[in-house]
Simulated scan of single mutants.
Amino acid sequence: MNRILFIFVITSTSGIPDKSCDRIRIGNNWYERETLWSDLGRPYNLNIHRGSNTLFFSYTQPETYSDVDFQLAYYNLDSNDHQNIVGIRGGCAVAINQATDEIYLGGSEGIYKYNMLTKLADFYKEDGVNIWALFYKRNLFYISYPDQKLYIEIDDKFSPVKEFIGMEVDHFHVNKDNDIYFANKTGLYKYDNDNNNIHIVNNLITVRQIVEDIDDNVYICTNLGLFSIKVDELEKVSDMKNVHGLAFDRDNNIVISDEKNIIKLINSKSGCIDDKDHW
Rank of each mutant, 00 (worst) to 15 (best):
I103G: 00
I205F: 01
S14E: 14
V161P: 05
R25G: 00
K125Q: 15
E153S: 10
W37A: 03
I85M: 07
V169H: 03
D69H: 09
Y142V: 02
V9F: 11
I16P: 02
E235S: 09
H244L: 12
M167R: 07
P17D: 10
I111A: 02
I180V: 14
I229K: 01
E163K: 13
D147M: 13
D18F: 08
A183K: 03
F8I: 05
Y145H: 15
A133C: 06
Q98P: 10
R138L: 12
D155N: 15
V174I: 15
T118E: 05
T118F: 12
N130I: 07
K236G: 10
N80T: 13
H173G: 00
T100P: 06
A183T: 06
N115V: 08
Q98K: 03
D155M: 05
D22K: 09
E102N: 13
N45F: 06
Y151G: 01
D232Y: 04
V255H: 08
K113A: 05
P62S: 06
S20I: 11
P62A: 10
T11D: 07
W132R: 15
A99T: 13
L246A: 04
L36V: 09
S238L: 05
V94W: 06
C21P: 06
R25T: 08
K185H: 12
M116A: 11
M167Q: 09
E63I: 15
L40S: 01
S268W: 03
Y114C: 00
I198P: 01
K113N: 07
F164Q: 03
G107N: 04
D275L: 11
R42S: 13
N193M: 14
Y65I: 11
F164Y: 06
I131V: 13
E63P: 00
I165F: 04
N184V: 08
S270N: 11
K162G: 01
G15R: 08
V129G: 01
S228P: 02
E168N: 11
I85E: 02
L226F: 07
D239C: 03
I7F: 14
D39M: 10
Y145W: 15
K149R: 14
F172Q: 02
W279R: 08
G90M: 05
F56N: 00
I26A: 04
A93S: 09
D18R: 10
N252M: 09
L234Y: 03
L150C: 04
G51P: 00
V243W: 01
G51F: 08
N175T: 04
G90N: 07
S38N: 12
